[in-house]
Simulated assay, not measured.
Amino acid sequence: MQNQQGQTHQNMHTGNIPQQMNHGGHEVLDVSEVLSGAIGTMDQYTMLRQHVKDQELLGILDRQYQFMQQEYNTTVDCFKTGQDPAVPTQSYKMTQNNDFVYGLQPSQPKKPVQSVGELTDECVSGMMLGAIKSSASMKTMAAMETTNPVVRRVLADSIPNCIEMAYEISLYQNKHHYYQVPQFAAGDMQQMVNAYAPANGQQMQMPNNNMTH
């Protein structure tokens, strides 16, 4: 049976593969984990929402939740059918600027809270960031084991969205001094930045195995 790319897929034991069954075993397990993880992240956002105090963080949470919900539906769609989803993968656009503030300032040591009443915007944003980073890892691993070309593309295209959402949260945290970013001393940084040179662009030469007698 041919898919929309014109490729024929067969199982050596059962013959032609219906489009909705065009998935490898490893892929099925990995995508199932991705989808379960997506549900877990959205459920976590739902539970955390009531503890958010800052309206800016609330806006980020709600906007990311809506985006994740559509992306989840797109992944479910192509996973069930093996074909292009009705709604293609979108690109997440964050609202934060790209200005990180570098340097450390004194702060209280972090420790686990003892009750939900102690949850702060710092705690909430930290859990959001952790969930998104975990999702990026799962999608990356799954995409590399996915045999269905459509599902692979949907997973691969969704990874930059995880990166963008994580970056947005980290920028929010940095602005509120929850996520402090140290830097190397200027001399050390200069040495590290200049530690690499461009490749020369020449074609790799193959060894000559022809021996002259």
Rank of each mutant, 00 (worst) to 15 (best):
N22D: 14
N16E: 12
H9K: 12
N97Q: 07
S137G: 05
S36W: 00
V76Q: 02
G40R: 04
A38Y: 01
K53D: 00
T120R: 10
Q70T: 12
C78E: 07
T8H: 11
D77P: 05
T81Q: 05
I39H: 13
V76P: 06
L129A: 10
F67V: 01
Q96H: 13
M138Q: 13
V124A: 02
T74A: 11
T89W: 04
E27K: 04
Q55T: 02
S107C: 14
V31I: 12
A142S: 15
D84K: 11
V116P: 00
T81E: 00
G25Y: 14
G82F: 06
S137V: 10
T74L: 03
Q19H: 04
F79L: 03
M42N: 11
G130Q: 10
N98H: 06
M21Q: 14
C123Y: 12
S107N: 04
Y72I: 11
V52N: 11
T120I: 08
A143M: 15
G25V: 02
V87Y: 07
C123T: 03
T75M: 15
T46V: 13
M42E: 05
L58G: 05
Q90K: 14
L129H: 07
E118N: 02
N11F: 11
N11W: 12
M128A: 01
T46R: 08
V87M: 11
M21H: 05
N22A: 09
E122M: 10
M144D: 07
T14I: 12
L61V: 09
P88A: 09
G24A: 08
H26N: 12
Y72S: 09
Q96G: 10
E118C: 02
F67Q: 06
E118M: 08
S125D: 08
M68F: 06
L119V: 05
S134V: 03
H26I: 08
M141S: 10
L58W: 03
S107K: 15
T74Y: 09
N73F: 12
V31N: 02
H26D: 13
A86W: 01
D77W: 01
K133T: 09
T147I: 15
V124Q: 01
L57D: 01
G40F: 03
M144H: 11
Q50I: 03
L48G: 01
Q55M: 05
D77Y: 04
T120F: 13
T8I: 15
I39E: 06
T89D: 02
C123N: 15
